[in-house]
Design a protein around this nucleic acid. Sequence first.
DNA 1: TGATAAAACAACATCGTGTCCATTATAATT
DNA 2: AATTATAATGGACACGATGTTGTTTTATCA
Lengths: 191, 191
Amino acid sequence: MVNSKVDRRVKYTRMVLKESLMKLLNEKPINTITVKELCALADVNRSTFYSHYSDQYDLLSKIEEEIIHDMNDTLMSYNVTQNEDALVMIEKIVEYIAANSDSCRILLSENGDPSFRNRLMMIAHDYTMKTSMNQNMMIDEEMTEYASWFAVSGSIHVLESWLKNGMNKSPKQMAEMINHLINKGLASFKA
Amino acid sequence: MVNSKVDRRVKYTRMVLKESLMKLLNEKPINTITVKELCALADVNRSTFYSHYSDQYDLLSKIEEEIIHDMNDTLMSYNVTQNEDALVMIEKIVEYIAANSDSCRILLSENGDPSFRNRLMMIAHDYTMKTSMNQNMMIDEEMTEYASWFAVSGSIHVLESWLKNGMNKSPKQMAEMINHLINKGLASFKA
DNA sequence: TGATAAAACAACATCGTGTCCATTATAATT
DNA sequence: AATTATAATGGACACGATGTTGTTTTATCA
């Protein structure tokens, strides 16, 4: 156990700082949040903060790092093969986001961090495109790249809206819809 | 002429401040830009800055406002009817972005402003969805909303990449590709 | 050219910042 | 339980950006 070597006080300090920053991000953008007020909310001395993080942005990126890493691990554990259907992969991603909806909702919101969105897109790109896109050859190399990002960006934004709407559909429903939109576009929704 | 009533000095001050902020945004994110350095670059007194804008973010939003307003006007002038093909509307939007590629590239980049992206998406949403989506009835109200945002977000992101790549395709090519992706998805690109 | 208004200049208090160090409190170890 | 180690606190500090104010200089407009 590597984790057990970390002092309990350190664990608590980092945890409460992360929680407090997320609370503040739920109310206002990062650029209006000061280290001072963050520490006041967390009831942590400002000196202590600086012994862990260089500033608000550093703390935010650490929070994101944690989620991204955790998500990667989770997806890795499914050990998806090239042949497996892309729909399964999309489902796994949606389910992970659902399981971490609070954090994801905040980080993807108006007050969130665009770079988190980008990192998430990179993961989605890797995990879905490898399986679905490469199955068939595409006409144009550059166009393929554009098409791939179109799908990923659209998907992520749909999930952002979904989180904002309190997850009014099941993860399975969302995954199926996204899969349809990616592969067949709006045509698949026309009556 | 309403514009001619504005003092030349005021015009110059605002112009040079806008230009300077864009230059800085081309190099680093807004949260690392100070009013002090912005004024130094623009060679404008800090007091003068404050008589026009409350802070960097205010100035940035004014810049965005200008582009958004201008874009709306441009699109309005085409007076697109409900029946007109969505492809035409997409072309107009792509062409506008191409004509203002420098500003749009910066504002949509890593150092740009997410809210500009959102405003752009609102416009694209209004101008394309009204024409294309409503032509056919959709199955589910909520799903229609999701599908619409999927298309818009994907499209904007593709255009972001396109700008970043130095516009290696023609606006017409991009518009056609986007139109295909929206309506037929990846299926339309498979060999 | 004279009236008007904007920009520049200088000075100011304020606030958050980042970094000290000494002290206190708490966890880990024996 | 006592000891050791180390994390957190509290206070102080200089520093720089901020936002404001009043005065002077400069440019514009009519």
